[in-house]
Nucleic acid binder design. Structure first.
Length: 678
DNA sequence: CCGCCTCGAGTTCT
DNA sequence: CTCGAGGCGG
């Protein structure tokens, strides 16, 4: 980036970040998620590092902590001050932290670590004198915070008197921990807000913070806040010596009746820290509250103390953050992809950004309507997330970041692959040439894909090379390829050549339904192919040619789920001369049929029952589960409705689970499901 | 004709 | 997984 545009971008970032902060802090409005805001701050920080001449004192990156509000009395914290934590975002960050710490302490080993979940809440300090809760405050600037004692008293998880314990209760005990809100409470409060026509909150953290800052403790009490402690200080070193490790300290806190996070663990080494982090990154959705990472510290408290403080964070502890679920980035360009059906799909090319543990560089924009709905132009700053935690998607365009240099995207009038005219079909724009190179290519990928001929090792990359070298012109050619032809290609070994030939021969016999699906007829997917195979069974390709070319629209419409549109598409496909020739060629090269496993639905104990699967099952694959259900006469469908009999929920279920709950559909766990199968 | 239930098609990265 | 749209019953 050149100097001038960097300067302009820095200005824009500063201005917008301040605007978002103002909206949130002063006007109590959420314009943007904290994660997206972090993402913007990071961009600003990076740019300022690159162009230090543009750093100003009023930059959001120069700000330290929040100042206490006027309405609350101030409290001065116990020593050591209430620190924040340094962040690590990757395993590499963790390794360098580990090495630095070892060097600093001059030790070859650091002993065990304590891993705690990093709650996304509000840090507070509680003071107990002779076992009685006397005061509590927010972190503030680390030295002085707001006195929110009255509000903290309303939190049931915070005992007003410490429980009798076999351990001596110290005269003064200072506890630090996190006040947070469960997702359940958050939803309840938001529903209530909506009912009252009040503002909807963006995330539980904001509500927790807002609730603690209430001047009226009754409001705080109505929001069932929760609390976990993560440490204690009291009467200086004497206390430290009594409980020399984090684990021991936690035990003693629990014996006093103070909750600590039950999922915290003592681990042996950095490898186990990373395992702990990965496990929770994956399972964090299952917790009743939000976490944004883990906190790693030394189990040995004395050693931790020796690490001291760098800046305003302890050296011997670190926040190992998860990759955010959404981030901001820039749309650098919009390219067009032509699919199997000829649809032109616009795809955004993004400035690479980490989201949910992977680096995102592309995101589909689906169609022109979507681009208009978002109000997106090339060069825009956008928020990206991952739908269903997998597929990257642009959820919002931050129009305030426009510099005026953005360019509108225009759907081309002619196909970028072969130049044919582009026509509009519903929301889609399509290349009008059925023989368009891109369509042919995509059709080939489809033909050999998992649900069709399922030839392993014959993915898009390999097919491309075969096509480009003229080794094949259509799918049928794959079955007459010679080992020598393949091995002659650069970067192709004899072994892989042999494999492909062998695999093709093995897979040249398929079920009729797979065969029909492979043809890639518009509107004929897995289910419709299955229905066709069931209604018009044929033993071999010769018979198929005769029987299917005679099918009339009325014949087809007698099949359930086939109406005029689908019927028309099938008849049209079969009439095409080129397709007939292709079918004949397939027969010549030895493609043949074998019986479908479950063509007829017969009555079993599950007949008449409809199943929907969501989440991953432990014991068996999704395909195996479907097969089992079908064997017993049950039906497997893809979406939940009132007619669904059961939703089988594995680990990490998706939106179908929520829908089932809403519709009151019976939900089966894996165990119950297996019981039903036997 | 409307509304519900399904199916089809497209999608990213490791 | 999500969206759009085809099929079908009322």
């Amino acid at each position: 980036m050149d100097r001038e545009s960097a300067k302009a971008r820095i200005e824009k970032l500063k201005h917008e970040i301040n605007r978002y902060r103002y909206a949130y802090h002063v006007r109590d409005k959420d314009l943007i998620s904290p994660e997206a805001l972090d993402s913007l701050k990071k961009e600003l920080f990076d740019l300022e590092t690159q162009f230090p001449q543009f750093v100003t004192a009023d930059s959001p990156t120069q700000r330290i902590g929040g100042e206490p509000l006027k309405e609350f009395k101030k409290v001065t914290h116990a020593t050591p001050r209430m620190n924040s934590l340094n962040d690590a975002f990757s395993k590499e960050d963790m390794e360098s932290w580990f090495t630095r710490l070892k060097n600093f302490l001059g030790r070859s080993a650091l002993g065990d670590f304590y891993c705690d979940l990093k709650m996304d809440g509000l840090a507070v300090e509680l003071v107990y004198k002779n076992g009685i809760f006397v005061s509590g405050g927010t972190r503030g600037d680390g030295l002085v915070g707001e006195d929110i004692t009255q509000n903290l008293r309303t939190i049931e998880a915070i005992p007003l008197t410490l429980q009798d314990s076999e351990r001596p209760i110290p005269k003064e005990l200072v506890i630090r921990g996190e006040v947070f809100l469960t997702k359940y409470e958050f939803d309840r409060i938001n529903k209530e807000q909506a009912r009252l026509g009040e503002k909807i909150y963006a995330n539980p953290r904001n509500v927790a913070a807002g609730s603690l800052r209430q001047l009226d403790p009754k409001v705080t009490a109505s929001r069932k806040l929760d609390f976990y402690a993560y440490g204690a200080i009291g009467e200086g070193l004497a206390y430290l010596k009594m409980y020399p490790t984090r684990s021991a300290e936690n035990k003693s806190l629990e014996s006093f009746g103070i909750k600590v996070n039950p999922d915290g663990r003592r681990v042996k080494n950095l490898g186990e820290v990373i395992t702990f982090w990965e496990r929770w990154a994956k399972h964090r959705e299952k917790l009743p509250y939000e976490i944004d990472g883990i906190v790693v510290s030394l189990e040995d408290k004395a050693l931790h103390e020796r690490g001291g403080i760098i800046g305003k964070a302890p050296r011997a502890a670190i926040a190992f953050k998860f990759s955010p679920r959404e981030a901001t980035t820039i749309v650098e360009d919009i390219k067009i992809q032509v699919g199997r059906t000829g649809a032109l799909t616009p795809v955004a090319e993004l400035k690479p950004v980490g989201v949910g543990g992977v680096t995102i560089t592309h995101a589909s924009l689906h169609n022109m309507d979507e681009i208009e709905r978002l109000g997106l132009k090339i060069g825009d700053t956008v928020i990206v997330s991952r739908a269903g935690d997998v597929i990257p998607q642009i959820t919002k365009v931050l129009h305030e970041f426009r510099s005026g240099k953005e360019k509108s995207f225009v759907m081309p009038a002619s196909c970028p692959v072969d130049g044919s005219k582009v026509t509009r079909d519903g929301v889609a724009f399509k290349c009008s040439n059925p023989k368009c190179g891109a369509r042919h290519r995509e059709g080939l990928y489809h033909f050999f894909s998992r649900k069709a001929f399922n030839i392993e090792g014959l993915g898009p990359k390999i097919i491309d090379r075969f096509l480009d070298k003229g080794l094949i012109t259509d799918a049928a050619d794959i079955f007459i390829l010679k080992e020598g032809d393949i091995a002659a290609l650069p970067r192709f070994g004899e072994k892989s050549a042999k494999n492909i030939v062998l695999e093709a021969k093995e897979r040249s016999q398929v079920t009729l339904s797979r065969f029909i699906y492979a043809l890639g007829i518009l509107h004929v997917g897995e289910e419709t192919a299955r229905a066709l195979a069931r209604h018009f069974p044929t033993k071999n390709l010769k018979e198929f040619l005769v029987k299917y070319s005679k099918l009339s629209l009325d014949n087809l419409k007698s099949v359930p789920d086939i109406g005029p549109k689908v019927g028309e598409s099938i008849v049209g496909w079969l009439k095409e001369k080129a397709h007939i020739n292709f079918l004949k060629k397939l027969e010549r090269v030895g493609v043949s049929f074998k019986g479908d496993i479950t063509l007829k639905s017969f009555s079993g104990k599950l007949s008449g029952k409809k199943f929907v699967l969501t989440g991953a099952l432990e014991g068996l694959s999704r395909e195996a589960a479907k097969e089992k259900i079908r064997m017993l006469g049950g039906e497997v469908v893809e979406s939940v409705s009132k007619k669904t009999s059961y939703v089988v929920a594995g680990t990490d279920p998706g939106s179908k689970f929520d829908k089932a709950k809403k519709l009151g559909v019976k939900i089966l766990e894996e165990k119950e499901f297996l019981k039903l199968l036997t």
